[in-house]
């Protein structure tokens, strides 16, 4: 499988603080990669940079055939206009820790918003597709509800459907179950397992080590803005080569 994501030497600073230092990572098409690491290690920042919600200060991120935020012409990188950056984002799905559903829109309106406004999909077609997605995440009956009327687990499943509605080539998950009550984590992970089986390319920041072992092809361990270690899921969990990884795994397994 060809690589669909190529991250090369990416640096991201907030003022003086380096949130990402020389991060490199490639993801093959259809691969599921989980990122683990302590809080503040730059996991969210990396996802936000891939989706161009943050601008990187060095290095290069390529998704599919495109360089994120830039266009290569005459040996130089030209910054893309807002509209084209938005178009790049529309092909990358993102699922947030806090769901971030649009509270003034119903479930189905949340899902068709992107296709309708960004893609210009005809309403009928968008609605039919939304209904299929809602069935896929097990919420067909909630189409007309408002997000505020749903449980956290249901909201997160709607958020996943909203991301899928744009038919993304890559979906980024930023701790999708961390804001959920423990009894609601399972239903969201179940949907994500189903997505992983369907050959979607996924990059998942998570603290659910069990999920990572079972669903991930590879696991990346990050610390202090660096990729410390990266390898096949079973192997990294069973025999972490770096002492920081061992420490972290010991702490989360406790």
């Amino acid at each position: 499988m060809p690589d669909i994501v190529r991250i090369r030497g990416v640096t991201k600073r907030f003022g003086q603080f380096e949130a990402l230092r020389d991060v490199s990572l490639s993801i093959a098409e259809g691969e599921v990669v989980c990122i683990i690491g302590p809080s503040g290690s730059g996991k969210s920042t990396l996802l936000r940079c891939i989706n161009n919600l943050e601008r990187i200060d060095g290095g290069l991120i390529e998704v599919g055939e495109e360089i994120i935020g830039y266009r290569l012409a005459g040996g130089r990188l030209h910054e893309l206009p807002d509209r084209l950056q938005a178009r790049q984002r529309s092909r990358i799905g993102m699922v947030f820790q806090q769901f971030n559903l649009f509270p003034h829109k119903t479930v189905v309106e949340n899902i068709i918003e992107g296709p309708l406004v960004v893609r210009g999909t005809p309403r009928e077609q968008a609605l039919a597709e939304a209904q299929r997605l809602l069935e896929r995440v097990g919420l067909a009956a909630k189409a007309a509800s408002y997000p505020g009327q749903l449980s956290g687990g249901q909201q997160q499943r709607v958020a996943i459907a909203r991301a899928l509605a744009m038919n993304p080539s890559l979906v980024l998950f930023d701790e999708p179950t961390s804001a959920l009550d423990p009894e609601l984590v399972g239903e969201v992970l179940e949907v994500m397992r189903e997505m992983a089986r369907s050959n979607l390319t996924m990059l998942v920041v998570t603290h659910e080590v069990a999920f990572a072992r079972e669903a991930a092809d590879r696991i990346v361990f990050m610390d202090h803005g660096r990729v410390v270690e990266c390898g096949p899921a079973e192997e990294l969990l069973a025999r972490p080569s770096h002492p920081r990884t061992r420490e972290f795994l010991a702490a989360v397994r406790k």
């Binding site: 919600l53 807002d82 559903l101 960004v118 958020a159």
Partner: peptide, 17 residues
């Protein structure tokens, strides 16, 4: 909330949208 802008941009909306 700032998350609303993030979500809107993540589905490909421009700032104006």
């Amino acid at each position: 909330g700032k998350g609303q802008v993030d979500a809107a941009r993540s589905i490909g909306m421009t700032q104006a949208q």
